[in-house]
């Protein structure tokens, strides 16, 4: 118990950081599900691409030591923009190539899911066989940032109780919250958002209102992809390593978060992300960090067994969000 109390604070901080990342990725799953009733399996690779885009920016700018102040803000803004563009672009392309033709053809949802899994594997292999060796000139299937200097100083800034808080914790949580607020504003406060909500609630009625469904679908993929791109940057800042499979594990956890909150529900995805991050982090105090994957799956199975509609219960269909 002493052990638990001693580690509770740090585990909470870590859980919030990783939960922010899950939440951002979960938004993409939940938005696409809300609009198309499709689980975009390849969303995990959209996230991975964001991380690699960030590495690209760091290499290109030639960061040689941790930066601070305005230089850091500038660097992060640039990185986030590039990652959003890369991930958003990938998501758009994915929609165009892997999903739209099936949709136009009136194929079953199972066909779309299989296409999604195929696209996911394709993107993984593309990262492994083309991007890592040819763009980054490494062939070991991993980019370890160990041989690159840190971008952010990781010494604690201050403590809350016995929990040391580092700059990367602050950046991750703040950046995630900013993105979530922006997305919420967009979905609930703009014309584009009204089109998305109408399509999620009743696609045929939306067409009868003059909503261009194809455009809504593209926008949804773009937004979800951009969020995953930001998550990729934050992941890189936190863990300082990437390989072609990182998306798989993060993707499953973010999907769990989306289901946990109630798939199709934006605020549910946020809640689910933070809850899963915290549960995982706290449980690893007892079980060890290597068990955190198991925790996520246990949570997923329990949710599906006892509350398949998730914590918030209602989907994007019914919810105001």
């Amino acid at each position: 118990m002493d052990n638990f109390l001693g580690q509770f604070g740090p585990a909470t901080v870590g859980g919030l950081a990783i939960g922010s990342i899950y939440a951002l990725v979960a938004l993409g799953y939940t938005m696409v599900y809300g609009v198309l009733r499709l689980i975009n399996f390849a969303h995990s690779e959209v996230f991975t691409i964001g991380g690699f885009a960030a590495v690209g920016v760091f290499l290109m700018v030639g960061v040689s030591a941790p930066v601070g102040g305005f230089a850091l803000i500038g660097l992060l803004l640039l990185t986030v923009l590039v990652a959003m563009a890369a991930s958003g672009g990938t998501a758009l392309l994915l929609e165009q190539v892997a999903y739209r033709p099936l949709r136009k053809h009136g194929s079953s949802r199972l066909a779309a899911l299989i296409s999604a899994i195929g696209a996911s594997l394709f993107l993984q292999e593309l990262i492994k066989l083309v991007i890592i060796p040819h763009v980054f000139g490494q062939s070991n299937g991993a980019i370890q940032l160990q041989n690159m200097p840190r971008v952010i100083d990781k010494t604690p800034l201050f403590s809350i109780g016995n929990a040391p808080i580092r700059l990367d914790h602050v950046i991750i949580v703040v950046a995630a919250v900013i993105m979530m607020v922006l997305l919420d504003r967009l979905v609930n406060g703009t014309r584009v958002g009204r089109g998305i909500r109408a399509t999620a609630q009743d696609p045929e009625a939306a067409v009868l209102m003059g909503v261009n469904i194809d455009k809504v679908v593209r926008t949804t993929f773009l937004l979800g992809g951009a969020m995953a791109g930001v998550a990729g940057v934050l992941y890189l800042l936190y863990f300082e390593n990437l390989d072609y499979r990182v998306g798989f594990v993060v993707g499953i956890k973010a999907f769990t978060a989306a289901v946990l909150g109630g798939i199709g529900n934006l605020r549910g995805a946020l809640l689910g992300g933070f809850v899963l991050g915290l549960v995982e982090s706290w449980s690893s105090i007892f079980l060890g960090a290597e068990w955190s994957e198991v925790t996520a799956f246990v949570v997923l199975v329990l949710v599906l067994m006892f509350r398949p509609t998730g914590i918030l219960g209602e989907s994007l269909q019914r919810a105001r969000a």
Binding site: R194, R197, A198, Q201, D202, E204, A205, A206, L208, M209, L316, Q317, R318, A319, R320
Partner: peptide, 15 residues
Amino acid sequence: GIFPGMTVQENLLMG
């Protein structure tokens, strides 16, 4: 085909 999660006014404005 009412949008269940929108208010009456929001539904009308969708028109």
